[in-house]
Structures are given as C-alpha cells and as structure tokens.
Nucleic acid binder design. Structure first.
Lengths: 249, 249
DNA sequence: AATGGCCATTGCAGAGAATGCAACGGACTG
DNA sequence: CAGTCCGTTGCATTCTCTGCAATGGCCATT
C-alpha cells in the first residue's frame, strides 16, 4: 500500500460529505497544507475533484463518468436489463437489480414503477443490507462461515418494527432464503413497502446478482405481491440462463 | 502533482474500459508489475477497484457510492428535481438537467418520458457537447474568449446531417442562444429526436445549469415541441428563483 | 503424475519523489 | 491603510516508492 495514494484517496470520501477548503482537507488528513494542496491538484488533474468558484473543492465530474462506464461494463446488468423492462411492462412495479461486493450490496439497475407512487432509491446507493430482499438473496449464497462472519459484523438498525433485529435472526432468515430460493422484505425497511426477490445464478450455480420487485401497500397488498412470485422467478431464471450461456469463461 | 497518485489514478479510466489483469495494468502504466500491484492494492483498500474471481481487476463499488453522494450534494439538482418532475407530469417527455464542468457538459438528473418511446441517456454520461441544447446554453454563458477557446478545442462529429459542423458555426449558434435565452437541438444528435432547453441562473445571473425537454419525432413534431417553450422557460425560471434565494452567499 | 511456464507476490537496497518548513503574495476586513 | 487569513511556491531533507530478482502457486501440456 502506498502512503501517498492512500492519503489522496482518503480525500474523496471526505469531500463526499460536502465541499471543503484546503485547510480543512489538510487538517482531516493530518498533513501539511502544501501536501494537501499537491494531492488535491493531482486529483483535480484527473477530474476527480472540482474546484468551485469559492475555491473550495468538491467531487468532480469524471467520477460520475467513471461510475457510469463501470456500471455499464457489468455484463449481468446488460443481460438483465431488457428482462427487467419486460417484467416491468407486465406488472408495473419498481424493479431493482443488485450485486454483492466487499461487504456491501448495491443496486446496479432500476426500472421505475409505472404507478404514480414511487419509492426512493438510486443506482449506486448501498442497500439496507439487513432487510432488503436482494441482500438476503446475495448473502444467503455465501458459505456458512462467510455468512456468519458478515452477519456478526453488521449493524441491525430497526428501520421499522419488522426489521431484522440481530445476527441470529438474520442468519435464520438467510438459511430460510437459501432453502426456498427466493426472498421477501415485508415492511422491514419502510413500513408501507413490500418486496419480493429472486436470485440470478451463473453457470456454476453461484448467485451473481439478485432482482426484486417493490410495491407500496397502497397499491398492492403483500399477499397480492406474492402472487407475482412465479413471474419474478421466471424472469430471474431467464436472466440466469442467458448469463450462463453468454459467459465465455 | 504527485507521480504516485497520478499513476494510481490513471488506472481508473483504464479499468473503465473493461477488466484487466496485473500485467496489462503494469504495461499500460509503463511501470514494473510490483509497482502496479501496490497501486492496485491501495485502490482496492479504498474500494475503488474490485478484484473479480478470475483475479482481474475492475472498477469497484465505492466508486458508485461516491458518485452518488457527489451528485446528491449538488444543490441545483436538489432544488430542480421537484420542478422537473412537475413539468414531466404536465408534458410527459424526457427531461434532462445538465451542468458544465471543466470542458465537459454532463447530465446530473433525468426524468423519464411517460411515453413508451424512450431515448437512451444516463446521468453521468458526458453530453454531445457540440449539438445538445443544454450544452449550447451552458457554453453560451462563458465569456467570449472562453467560448472561442473551447470551440476551437472541440471535435465536431457529424452525428446527423444537421449536426453543427465546425467551430465557426458553433460560435454563431452560441451567440444566437445567448441572445435569445433558450436553445434547441433539432435532430442534430439523433435524426429523429428534438430538444428544447432553457438556462438556470444563479443570483449573479450566471448560468449554473441547463434543462431540456427531448422528444422523438414520432411523438411530437419539432413545431409542436416548440410550443412547449414557455412552459420550459417558466420552469427554468422558477428553479432559478429558488436557487438564487436559497444560496446563502 | 510430472514438468514447464505463467502470473501474482514479496524482501531489499538504491534512488527518486514526496514532505514540511518558511517565506511570499493576494484578498478581504476592521 | 494595516493586519490577518489562506493559498501558493522553492528548497533541503528524509522517507517512501520503485525496480530487480527470487519465490511460490496455479494451470496446461506431455
């Protein structure tokens, strides 16, 4: 690991909190101002930070562009997208696609509900990992020791009274999900929103992504949502097949 | 500028093209493999690159998260969003919001058309700078020498027969846009798609962002689209007012 | 099963780059 | 007009990064 690069990269999350001036950056990094200046300059040259008119720094444009290109290079996403669109045209609700990476689950695609009531979420946002249906699916596929290790490390915020409260309950839930091959989140994140999800598997049978359908209570009840499960699983399986076939190893 | 950081950051666009292994990265950077390894390690620790199962590297999850947080910190975007939604509910077409930064124009928000025919674009994608309505608006606000400098540097790809062909034509167009206070792109990017756009101004009158409405020929003709101009300008002005008021110096 | 080659990885010594200091300069303020 | 604050620059020192060469693991080939 390189100290200089390490320091430079530490600036990024710092600026993600909001714009900062040279002094603040230097202080947070615990380095001399001149050092911070040179790091910022280098980041600037690469377009990762931007200097606004008041001379403060904030995250720059190329960061978006990079994130975009990155997400477009994920072949699961590319393959899945038309299927998600198609499912959305059938059932209308919001559809998410998510992957697991380094202790985080994040959305990599989304098709908006065609109902007026929409939920807030964004591609790139980390998922509420202890409650979301897609998170359960992705974590359920890890090996038993990995699951344990991850479950122990997590926090279990009680978004609602139905949120999963602790590691033990979470591991039980993962076991159930693993067994049944699909997952739900019934009001565990937002009181009035339910989700059902299904896994997408690669050629080796491992779960490479997960998709879910979300809908607020006011549009469909949890029971009605569950009747869509066969369609969701069928879509997920179709994506799995295409993905497995497509992967040239 | 720091050499080490410079090299490390050069890895990111490289990986944006697609996954690469250690040897490829070292070669592209023209450094020893051990050096490349350590740089990649550092990037990895910060979550900016991810090591996939075949040991190759690709861009990592935190990059998305950072880009997300960055875009959410842009106050123009936050203020504009509800207005864009509202306009979309009135007229149905795709709406974009864009800013100019360091010789690039990029979309920072988008509301999808409610018509079935949608256009392809993505938040974070650089805009076709020589033809897009929002690009014209943002560049038209630069000082005359700046406009000249930028116009000279650009390429003028002929996306269609109606694309702006060269710097001279572009500068004329910018002058016109500056004069009239709104802009169009009539089939200059995609033969069958027209856009109209209006600027969003800060308290000092400078253009801080631009919005546009895009619709394909098959839904509305260019003439019909132009009839929406008053609504678009009204929306842009409303955003300008709120933004100017909101900015605490 | 054994061998060869490829690629990632590590320890080390030298060299080159990053660091912090101190001084400068410009902008804003009282 | 003086004073202060913040960003910026040149420079000597030091520490870190670099490239080399050797190791070890993995896969394919025979």
């Amino acid at each position: 690991m390189s100290q200089t690069v390490d320091r430079a990269l530490s600036i990024l999350p710092l600026l993600a909190e909001g714009p900062a001036d040279l002094g603040q950056v230097a202080e947070r990094l615990d380095v001399h101002k001149s050092t911070a200046l040179r790091l910022l300059r280098t980041l600037h040259e690469h377009g990762l930070v931007y200097r606004q008119s008041d001379q403060r720094y904030r995250l720059g444009a190329r960061l978006f562009a990079l994130a975009q290109e990155a997400v477009e290079n994920l072949d699961v996403r590319e393959i899945a997208h038309p299927h998600l669109i198609e499912l959305n045209e059938q059932i209308g609700h919001t559809i998410h696609l998510a992957v697991y990476e380094e202790n985080e689950v994040l959305y990599i695609d989304k098709v908006e509900s065609r109902y007026p009531v929409r939920m807030y979420s964004r591609i790139g946002k980390p998922v509420a990992i202890t409650v979301a249906a897609v998170a359960k699916l992705l974590l359920a596929d890890l090996s038993e020791p990995e699951r344990r290790a991850v479950a122990e490390k997590l926090d279990y915020p009680m978004y609602t009274s139905r949120s999963i409260p602790n590691a033990a309950a979470f591991l039980r839930e993962l076991a159930a999900v693993r067994e049944q091959g699909w997952a739900t989140d019934l009001g565990g994140h937002e009181e009035s929103i339910n989700c059902i999800g299904a896994p997408i598997r690669g050629a080796d049978g491992r779960v490479v992504a997960a998709m879910s359908v979300s809908a607020p209570n006011v549009v469909v009840t949890a029971e009605e949502l569950l009747t869509l499960l066969p369609q969701v699983r069928r879509t997920a399986d179709a994506i799995s097949r295409e993905y497995s076939g497509h992967t040239p190893a």
